[in-house]
């Protein structure tokens, strides 16, 4: 690696750095809520089913707006944090620093595209048999 290379933190920027830390703390909260909701509250337990995740059980849960908000919020945070982290890793390499614009655009497209995909794939559960 060349001696005069610019520090990755300079390339990535202060905002990216700060955001990585803020999203990290939020993710710990989301992870706690997610694990509790999915595995301990056991909304479908009264159906007397196996401790198996089923379509009906998830639908039942996603009848409540709170779950929808938590799920989509967590997905957004995970994508922002994960792709922002991946961006940092890329900028440790000169060949990617040289293509900063391209990388930034690509990561935003991948992130927003994945978010939309993630939102859409929950629709069957939300409109599903839970009601």
């Amino acid at each position: 690696m060349s001696e005069q290379r610019v520090a990755t933190s300079k390339v990535a920027g202060t905002w990216a750095w700060a955001f990585q830390r803020i999203s990290a703390v939020l993710l710990i909260v989301f992870l706690g809520v997610h694990l509790y909701a999915a595995h301990f509250m056991d909304v479908g337990a009264e159906t007397g089913e196996e401790p198996l995740i089923t379509f009906d059980e998830v639908s039942l849960r996603l009848d409540q707006l709170l779950y929808i908000v938590v799920d989509y919020g967590m997905l957004s945070m995970v994508l922002l944090h994960g792709l922002n982290g991946f961006r940092t890793v890329l900028f440790d390499f000169d060949m990617f620093v040289r293509r900063k614009k391209l990388i930034d655009v690509t990561l935003w497209v991948v992130g927003i595209g994945t978010l939309i995909w993630g939102i859409v794939i929950l629709f069957p559960f939300i409109s599903g048999a839970g009601g």
Binding site: T54, T114, I121, L122
Partner: peptide, 29 residues
């Protein structure tokens, strides 16, 4: 671990997407 988790997110979403493949989530179940 960070990079592995990014890969896992995509795997996770592709699993959940099976819910839209069959009526009543049969493929998901």
């Amino acid at each position: 671990t960070g990079l592995a988790l990014v890969a896992y997110v995509f795997l996770h979403l592709s699993f959940i997407s099976t819910a839209s493949m069959a009526e009543g989530g049969a493929d998901f179940d």
